[in-house]
C-alpha cells in the first residue's frame, strides 16, 4: 500500500488553474519533498490531501483512504503543519500539546517516544506561551503537536520558511529520525537547497510537475555542458557572456555565473572571449549542476 496516491488531481480558483492534472505516488514511510515557488500549488495540494478542500477532478488516497469517501478516517490519522503558525498563542507549550493529544483521544505519555527528541529541546520552555516562542521553537512545537497522535502520514507545508539556518538544519535532522517510525512525510519548501534532505522530490511550477525522482538522479540527468565563471566585474561579465555565440544560458549563481555552453565549446574559447571583452582575473571551471540549474533549464 502506498502512503499517498494522487491521480490526475486538478483544481481551479476562478480563471487560475492551481493544480493541473497532477499525479504521483509516495511510498509508505517515504520522505517526499514538493519543491516549488510561491504559487506553484503546494498549499492547495496539501489542503486537498488533508480533506480541507475538494478537487475539481481526479482522485487521491492517503494511507489507503479515499480523500472524498473516507475523509473522517484521514482526519484521524494524519498530522498537518500548515504554512502559517496555527497553534494557540495564548496557551503554553505543554497546554498546546495536551490539547492536541486530548482531541485525538490519546495522551502525551502514550506517544512520548515519538516526540521525545524534539520535545526535549522545547521542554525547558514548557510553561511559556506559544506566542512568545522564537521561530525555531514554534516550529518544533508545531511538529510535536502534529505528531502526538502517531499519524500515519505527516503533511508539512513550508515548515522551514522564515526560520534561521541552524533551526532549519535541526528540523531536517528530526524529520530524518522519524523514518524509523514508518511515518510517510510529504513536505513542501520553496528552498531548492533543501531538496537533498528528501528521499524523492517533485519540482512543481504553476500546478505541474517538471521533474520527479531522487534528488541525485534529477541532478545527474542534467547533461548539458555547464561552466562556473567569474571575473573582477561580475555584472559586466554577465552582460558580455549573454552576447557570446557559444552561450545557451547565463545565470547569476552566487559567487560565480553559471554558463550553459553549446556542445563542443572549449574552456579556452570562453576565457579568450572574456579577455577580449576586457575582463581581468577570469576564473573558469567546470560546474557541477545543482537542483536550481535543473529547475532553470526545465522552466
Amino acid at each position: 500500500m502506498n502512503g499517498i496516491e494522487v491521480e490526475n488531481i486538478s483544481k481551479s480558483f476562478g480563471d487560475t488553474l492551481a493544480l493541473d492534472a497532477l499525479s504521483f505516488k509516495v511510498a509508505q514511510g517515504e520522505r517526499f519533498g514538493l519543491l516549488g515557488p510561491d504559487g506553484a500549488g503546494k498549499s492547495t495540494l496539501f489542503k486537498i490531501l488533508t480533506t480541507l478542500l475538494l478537487p475539481d477532478a481526479g482522485r487521491a488516497t492517503v494511507a489507503g483512504w479515499d480523500i472524498d469517501k473516507d475523509f473522517k478516517e484521514i482526519r484521524r490519522h494524519v498530522g498537518y503543519m500548515p504554512g502559517k503558525f496555527s497553534l494557540y498563542q495564548d496557551l503554553s507549550v505543554s497546554e498546546n500539546l495536551n490539547f492536541f493529544a486530548t482531541i485525538f483521544g490519546t495522551t502525551i505519555k502514550a506517544n512520548y517516544h515519538l516526540i521525545k527528541p524534539i520535545y526535549e529541546q522545547i521542554e525547558p520552555f514548557r510553561d511559556r506561551r506559544a506566542g512568545a516562542l522564537s521561530g525555531g521553537m514554534k516550529q518544533k512545537l508545531a511538529l510535536c503537536c502534529a505528531l502526538i497522535h502517531q499519524p500515519k502520514v505527516l503533511f508539512l507545508d513550508e515548515p522551514t520558511t522564515g526560520v534561521d539556518a541552524v533551526s532549519r538544519d535541526e528540523f531536517w535532522a528530526m524529520l530524518a529520525q522519524l523514518k524509523d517510525a514508518g511515518i510517510t512525510i510529504l513536505v513542501s519548501t520553496p528552498y531548492m537547497d533543501e531538496a537533498e534532505r528528501c528521499e524523492r522530490v517533485a519540482l512543481l511550477q504553476t500546478g505541474k510537475i517538471l521533474a520527479l525522482d531522487r534528488p541525485q538522479t534529477i541532478v545527474g540527468n542534467f547533461t548539458e555542458p555547464l561552466w562556473a565563471i567569474r571575473a573582477d566585474n561580475y555584472y559586466q561579465l554577465l552582460l558580455d557572456l549573454r552576447k557570446a555565440p557559444f552561450s545557451q544560458r547565463v545565470e547569476v549563481f552566487g559567487e560565480f555565473l553559471h554558463l550553459t555552453a553549446r556542445p563542443a565549446t572549449t574552456g579556452e574559447e570562453i576565457t579568450t572571449y572574456a579577455e577580449h571583452c576586457g575582463h581581468g582575473n577570469i576564473l573558469l571551471k567546470p560546474a557541477e549542476a545543482t537542483i536550481e540549474d535543473v529547475f532553470l533549464a526545465l522552466m
Binding site: G36, P37, D38, A40, T161, G162, P190, M192, Q205, Y234, Y235, L238, E251, V252, E292, F295, L296, M299
Partner: peptide, 16 residues
C-alpha cells in the same frame, strides 16, 4: 524569499 529560481535571479540582476 519564496520565489522561483528564475524570478529570484531577475531580482539579483536588478541589484547588481
Amino acid at each position: 524569499g519564496g520565489v522561483d529560481p528564475a524570478t529570484r535571479r531577475q531580482f539579483w540582476e536588478m541589484i547588481y
